[in-house]
Amino acid sequence: MPRVIHIVDDDEPVRTALSLLLRSFGWQASAFGSARAFLESLRQGDMPDCLLLDLNMPGMNGAELMEALASMRVWVPVIIMTGQRDSPLEARARRAGAREVLNKPFGDEELKASIERALANAGGG
C-alpha cells in the first residue's frame, strides 16, 4: 500500500508538477488549490500520510492551516514550501509544528529526503 501525500498550493502548474514527481517516486498524490479545499477533504475522512504545504496563499495561508490543524488535534507530518527564506510566516508555521521546510525551487532528491524523514518521524512518533 503506497503512502499518500497531499499537496496544498494555490499555483496550479506547481501542484500538477509536484503530483507527477511524487508519483514517479511511487507515492500516491492528491493536490488541493486552497487550505479550505484540503480541510474539506479531511472532513470527508481523507487523511494523508504527509502534507506538502505552500506557505504563501491567498485566503487561509499555510501557517494558519497548521494552526487550524493543531486546534482540530489533527496530527499529520507537514513539509512547508516557501519562496521566501526566513519570513515571519515561516517562523509562525514552525511554532505550529512544522519541522521540514523546503525553499522553492527545490530538487527532487531534496524533496524525497524531506518526505522520507517526515514519514519516518511520524512512524516513529
Binding site: T16, A17, L18, L20, S24, G83, Q84, K104, P105, G107
Partner: peptide, 23 residues
C-alpha cells in the same frame, strides 16, 4: 521579494516535471 517568488513558482514546476520524467 515578490518577483523572486513569481520566478520560483515556474522553476518549481519545471524541476518537478523534468525530474519526474527522468525517473
Amino acid at each position: 521579494a515578490g518577483l523572486a517568488h513569481e520566478i520560483n513558482q515556474p522553476l518549481t514546476a519545471i524541476l518537478g516535471h523534468a525530474r519526474a520524467w527522468v525517473r
